[in-house]
């Protein structure tokens, strides 16, 4: 509920974890792991964002209504991404959109 007070100790623990994960994701950025680079980077980002939402934004202690609003936000975002990517990923891109090609082959703009 709105009145819950998170201890400074827990805040500090979350803060240190976030800093460590930033260091890890940066270090992994210097290594070429092929497709695993983006998977690891996004997994760490989702983990960091979850910590911020749960503890810094107090979602862990929130009432039903904020939880419902947050869950529906994620649902609409999932619809946006899933429907669009299901089109993009199943399409053959032998002929990428022409507009950008003609613009940038000149090396300008």
């Amino acid at each position: 509920m709105a009145g819950h007070i998170v201890s400074i100790k827990l805040y500090a623990l979350i803060f240190i974890t976030l800093l460590v994960m930033t260091g890890v994701t940066t270090a992994v950025g210097y290594v070429d792991l092929g497709r695993w680079n983006i998977i690891i980077a996004l997994a760490i980002a989702i983990f960091k964002a979850s910590l911020v939402i749960l503890f810094f934004m107090h979602m862990k202690y929130a009432g039903k209504l904020p939880r419902l609003v947050f869950a529906s936000t994620l649902l609409w975002l999932a619809i946006l991404i899933t429907l669009t990517m299901s089109d993009v990923l199943t399409r053959s891109w032998d002929h990428p959109p022409q507009g950008w090609q003609s613009l940038s082959t000149s090396g300008q703009r």
């Binding site: 930033t22 994701t25 940066t26 992994v28 950025g29 210097y30 290594v31 070429d32 792991l33 680079n37 983006i38 980077a41 996004l42 760490i44 980002a45």
Partner: peptide, 10 residues
């Protein structure tokens, strides 16, 4: 940060 700075390995 990961999407813009961390594409592939450096």
């Amino acid at each position: 940060f990961p999407l813009l700075y961390l594409i592939g390995g450096r």
